[in-house]
Design a protein around this nucleic acid. Structure first.
Lengths: 125, 125
DNA sequence: GTCGTTGCAAAGCGTTTGCAGCCTA
DNA sequence: TAGGCTGCAAACGCTTTGCAACGAC
């Protein structure tokens, strides 16, 4: 059975307070504010546990370390601002993907990442 | 000045024959067909060299090690087989991406990755 | 002959695992 | 009290680097 330790609670709160995708290093830094001696192995183990039980979603962008965020909506994609590096959720999706799938291939899922300038950075470059 | 060694030639030909993005392990395996004692460090060093001179493009999929492909193809995306883990190039592209971009955001580029079964794995599961 | 290149081994670096002791239920 | 959880350190997998020998030009 799963237990509620100080360490796991601190890691959960780190994600809830940040309200954005966090990497393992950021989680360690934030959660150590509550639990001083927190070890990196504990962060990795808890992130895996929380992801397995569906409390966390994995956010993986090409060429970047995995981030994790509190599980939110269903199917969505991400927009990454090339200026401020923030990542935003993008509701909605493209249609007619099956048209470009090569013959004989069977499509099961897809990932789409948009790059550009977010509203803030477009307004004040 | 750059030299044409047997090892570099074998690595170039591995990419040209495969005609799909290759990881370092795949390159090592393929190029060893020509140069038996080829070392993994040589593969890494040559991939870096070929990428720096523009002969190779880097293909990065979310959460995976980088792959590389010969440069010069037009705009395309990638299909990753969840069974054999190979990555294929997919010509063509989705349309109407601007519809899902949030108001105020400006879209500059995008990455699309398709997941499923390739033709080989669909035929013989 | 020069010096870019190679294979080997060791070093990095981020992540995972083994273990003895701790602490939640 | 049982056994899940933790911190530490070692192990791990992938990539880079140091070095002496090799070989393209």
């Amino acid at each position: 059975m799963e237990r509620n330790t100080r360490q796991r609670g601190a890691i959960r709160r780190a994600f809830q307070r940040a309200d954005r995708p966090l990497g393992t290093g950021e989680v360690l830094e934030l959660a150590r504010g509550e639990v001083g001696g927190l070890g990196i192995a504990t962060v990795y183990r808890n992130i895996r546990t929380l992801a397995n039980e569906g409390w966390l979603d994995v956010v993986e962008l090409p060429g970047e370390v995995p981030r994790y965020e509190v599980r939110g909506k269903g199917h969505h994609h991400h927009f990454r601002c090339r200026q401020c590096d923030r990542v935003y959720e993008v509701p909605g999706c493209v249609g007619s993907l099956s048209e470009i799938v090569p013959p004989g291939f069977s499509l099961e899922s897809h990932e789409l990442v948009l790059y550009g300038l977010c509203a803030d950075c477009s307004a004040s470059p």
